[in-house]
């Protein structure tokens, strides 16, 4: 039996700021709860220090970068070391668009922070579904 098609969802994981926490938690929600069968991820620093196999990630999987802020660490690292991203999401831009304030703590998200993370996760899911529906998935997966 063929395994289901996969899309890579890569978070910047930003440990230093709350936008990074939102990016990481939203990514985990997608991987664990929303699209567990159709998503894979990788620890971002492996693009620089990992083996050659890790650098093939964006060539094997159409990849969505989920970045906390305009520094766009995930998008830049993926595109520098692995391949073109299929889509890029920047958390701070979404918060501005939604007129939502940043949560106060980078360490723990409170109930309000979790709601924001869920909303970001829904955005990621919409991109995943669009990649599958539109057939762009195949083009980005080099197949």
């Amino acid at each position: 039996m063929n395994s289901p098609p996969k899309i890579g969802v890569v978070s910047c994981s930003g440990e230093g700021c709350v936008e990074g926490t939102l990016s990481r938690v939203a990514t985990r929600l997608v991987l664990e709860r929303l699209r567990p069968d159709n998503t894979v991820t990788i620890c971002l620093p492996l693009f620089l220090t990992g083996e050659k196999g890790e650098r093939m990630f964006a060539k094997y999987f159409p990849t969505i970068a989920v970045d906390g802020c305009e520094k766009k660490c995930a998008e830049k690292a993926i595109e520098k070391y692995s391949g073109k991203t299929a889509h890029s999401i920047v958390v701070i831009n979404l918060l501005n668009e939604w007129y939502v304030e940043k949560p106060g703590s980078r360490r723990n998200l409170d109930e309000k922070g979790m709601k924001v993370a869920s909303r970001i996760a829904d955005e990621v899911v919409a991109v995943i579904d669009d990649l599958f529906k539109s057939g762009k998935w195949r083009r980005h997966a080099n197949i």
Partner: peptide, 28 residues
């Protein structure tokens, strides 16, 4: 990550800090 936050925000607050590792990955 949680151990880092415990050190930076509680145990050795003011003596320590952290930053996003990904910034080093992109050569910021």
């Amino acid at each position: 990550r949680e151990a880092t936050y415990q050190v930076v925000e509680d145990l050795r607050k003011g003596e320590t800090d952290t930053l996003c590792l990904s910034l080093l990955v992109i050569g910021d």
